[in-house]
Design a protein around this nucleic acid. Structure first.
Lengths: 152, 152
DNA sequence: GCGCTCCTGACCAAAGAGGTCAGGAAAGTC
DNA sequence: GACTTTCCTGACCTCTTTGGTCAGGAGCGC
């Protein structure tokens, strides 16, 4: 139930790319500096994003990275899935494939609901939203509640 | 963003305990059989639940485990936190303590919203709900959508 | 005091997290 | 064509986590 450094880095780098537009490519080093991410680690991450079709790249002078799609067509879920794999797996299996017995029968529904609520946020916030700071209304409301900021 | 075997086991064992009531203790072996969990691993988990004050235990013949509170006063979040620690940490830190820079500034709000939505399910389903099969309305609705069952 | 059951720490293998290092391969520039 | 720049890739590394197992001890009831 935690977000890895890799996923966090990936989203932040993608946000920088979204902000840069597609005029000209952004170098890995610049991304690393902008978001304070270890360069060599970041390049591995960018490679995964490239393989997932989220990012494109060119080598050499004037080379660098840029988004493969429009910033409003890439969600945070896309980026996280590219580097972390499926969201909300239970014991490395998707919740819809698990069968529970005895008094835990309804647990499957619970995990499904959990996943649905994760998706409700991650699949609806795009890189464009992130950069502009204007998150979807529902997400903004969730984050606005003081209760949501309580440690626990 | 995944649920560990340990957390899954813990919730399932707790559900069995909730169903058993507090007439007489349930043996670890019986819990292990009912939910098909490796016994020795389960006992470690039950110990953690005990240290967290969720479960109580007695040794010897007629010994076993039982819930320390009423089944409707223990949420799934309580159980998960007892064995996995805080829910929805980012890079091992709580989202409210992270500061993002540049174009990722709004990312903190996104992680806060993610956590809020996780809590919205996990803190509102009790062991009593789980055993009875009657989940809170909002959770039932989430799990009812065919979309929630799609793999992706 | 004997058997039952929980309690606890030690251990273990495999995988993942979070990186670093070294070199190769393309793209542009002179 | 050489050189520089930048991405691309695999190997490697340390530390922690995951998912267990094993062996023995300690308390409880009879």
């Amino acid at each position: 139930m935690r977000v890895s450094a890799k996923a966090d880095y990936a989203v932040r780098a993608a946000a920088e790319l979204a902000a840069a537009g597609d005029e000209e490519p952004v170098k890995g080093e610049k991304l690393a500096e902008a978001q304070d991410i270890p360069l060599q680690f970041l390049e591995h991450i960018l490679l995964e994003l490239k393989h997932a079709g989220i990012v494109r790249a060119r080598r050499g002078a004037k080379g660098g990275y840029w988004l493969a799609k429009q910033a409003d067509e890439v969600t945070i879920a896309d980026v996280v899935r590219a580097v972390e794999g499926p969201i909300a797996h239970v014991q490395s299996a998707p919740p819809e494939s698990i069968e529970y017995r005895g008094n835990a029968k309804s647990l499957q529904q619970v995990w499904i609901a959990v996943r649905a609520n994760l998706r409700a946020v991650l699949e609806h916030v795009t890189l464009a939203d992130l950069v502009s700071g204007e998150l979807p209304g529902a997400v903004e409301e969730l984050a606005a509640s003081p209760d949501a900021w309580a440690p626990r």
